[in-house]
Amino acid sequence: MNIFRISADLLHLASFFILIFKMKATKSCKGISFKTQLMYTLVFTCRYLDLFHVLGMMITFNFAHITGLTLYNTFMKILFLAASYYIVYLMRTELKSTSDDARDTFVLWHILAPCAVLALIFNAQFTILEILWTFSIYLEAVAVMPQLMLLIETGEADSLSSHYMFAVGGYRALYLVNWVYRYATEPYYSNWIAWIAGFVQTALFGDFFYYYFVKIMSGDAALKLPT
């Protein structure tokens, strides 16, 4: 555990609260891609299946392998799962009438199928849990695509949406730094699957980051994309 990893997780956690706050405050999910949020629930569901194992150990009072890091990870995993499912729930119940589904036109198979195939080929171990974990890593890298397409279609984003995108994009950039740090400090550390996927994921936000910083510099309220 290092400062880069902790700040990354806190930035990720902030992204959920920014989005939920925005949806509750404006009572609208306009400009938010349901498909991207749905992909995030799938990402965390496939990635955090080890929760059952950890929670199983806890309720059987088998604390031998429970460390502080395990508790931190378990707490955050439950938070991330709850927040991402809550967002999808909000978008399909209370805020359904304000959904932007008409413009949320990204074809999900274009990311689901390649990630599934890649996870079956490039993985650390050919086991169900490891393949699902790898699938979640690949899927998270491209899960923002529907949201980016919607942002391009809209041509602009209000400031909360742009802060949300900055947080959700920035957290993985901090993970890249965390991986460099761990590679440099831990003798047998290698995480090339997550590194490559994380690099692609951060690169996908590159264009957005550019316009986000331009907006910050120029003091504009809303993020403007070139028409």
Binding site: R5, D9, H12, R47, D50, L69, N73, M76, K77, F80, A124, Q125, W133, Y175, N178, Y188, Y189, S190, N191, A194
Partner: peptide, 10 residues
């Protein structure tokens, strides 16, 4: 040994 690293990250 290629210790199968446990996923200790989120």
């Amino acid at each position: 040994a290629a210790v199968h690293r446990d996923h200790d990250e989120l």
